[in-house]
């Protein structure tokens, strides 16, 4: 029989780790299933593992590196007894209590873990373009991680796709290396915050291609160019670039819970806001996996705190009943 845990937290970004800190201090002895290494935001520590300076997390007036911030979150949770496993959940059964969790293999046989309550904080991951060649050229010019790969594009011309905060932040970061960064955006204005926009507009290495979409990625061994079409004039052009950084948005990591937890039409988990409870009693959700609106480290952390308190109260009620 797998050991029965009071609380299992799935995911270890700001939301999951804040839930771990609070629930560990409440003596729930939480187990965090932290995820597994990858070069996407879907990894232990979450999307902040792919960032450099985090300038807007309160308490760090000079900013802090994303991976360092997440290491701090984790050691704070460990200090109060939270346990961690570097493993990725592959399947859950929320139809019976205790809830059942399988990792690293399909749903068969005895579960790997059992839990009285679960906090889901699996976050979100970058959306890819879905073009031919895209996956083949990852690591050969196509990148999902500017902080990992920017270094290799010294004095080269590259492109960033997207118009939100992460696209503009990546583009600005990449000007440290590249000779020219073209931001390709499908609208004629940016969604990014004012401060990020002003920084990008003031940067003479950054150029903009407005109303434009990439419809082909060219290259065999290495990325050579991309084909761009203007979605207003239908005018086509080819841009010679050696690097392409994709930052067109995120998708919540909820495939795991399909058919068991209610989501909206974009896949975000639905909670009984302001509470973090889901449609399954004893299962709570926090962070980007349930937040289509704010998606900030601090809002994720805040909702992680709420989820821990909700889980603690729910477990107490079960005990009393």
């Amino acid at each position: 029989m797998p050991a029965l845990h009071n609380l299992i937290i799935i995911g270890s970004g700001p939301a999951g780790l804040t839930a771990a800190i609070y629930s560990a201090r409440a003596a729930l002895e939480p187990l965090v299933l932290a995820g597994e290494p990858s070069s996407t935001g879907d990894q232990p520590g979450g999307q902040l593992m792919l960032t450099t300076d985090v300038e807007n997390f309160p308490g760090f007036p000079k900013g802090i590196m994303g991976p360092e911030l997440m290491a701090n979150f984790r050691s704070q949770a460990e200090r109060f007894g939270a346990k961690f496993e570097t493993t990725k959940v592959t399947s859950v059964d929320l139809s019976q209590r205790p809830f059942k969790i399988w990792t690293d293999r399909p749903h068969d046989g005895e579960a790997d873990y059992e839990a009285k309550s679960i906090i889901v904080s699996t976050g979100a991951k970058s959306v890819m373009l879905g073009l031919d060649n895209e996956t083949e050229l990852i690591g050969r010019g196509v990148s999902t991680c500017a902080t990992c790969d920017g270094f290799f594009f010294k004095d080269q011309e590259i492109a960033v796709i997207g118009g939100g905060d992460s696209a503009i932040e990546e583009a600005t970061f990449l000007t440290k290396f590249a000779s020219k960064v073209t931001i390709i955006h499908r609208r004629d204005e940016l969604r990014a915050s004012k401060i990020m926009q002003e920084r990008a507009f003031a940067n003479d290495k950054i150029e903009f291609l407005w109303d434009s979409e990439v419809h082909a990625i060219n290259g065999t061994e290495q990325l050579e160019s991309i084909d761009v079409v203007n979605n207003k004039t239908q005018e086509k052009s080819t841009l010679a670039v050696t690097g392409l950084f994709i930052a067109i948005g995120h998708r919540p990591n909820t495939d795991l819970f399909k058919g068991q937890l209610d989501t909206n039409d974009k896949g975000y988990l639905l909670t009984n806001s302001p509470a973090t409870s889901t449609n399954v009693a004893g299962v709570f959700a926090c962070g980007d996996v349930q937040d289509e609106t704010y998606r900030q480290a601090i809002t994720a952390a805040g909702s992680g705190c709420s989820a821990a308190i909700d889980a603690e109260r729910w477990l107490e009620d079960q005990h009393d009943a």
């Binding site: 290494p37 990858s38 070069s39 593992m49 792919l50 994303g66 991976p67 902080t147 270094f151």
Partner: peptide
Amino acid sequence: WAEWCGPCRAVAPI
């Protein structure tokens, strides 16, 4: 690898 690469740090202990 490099010091500044988060995913590299995750791979190192493995």
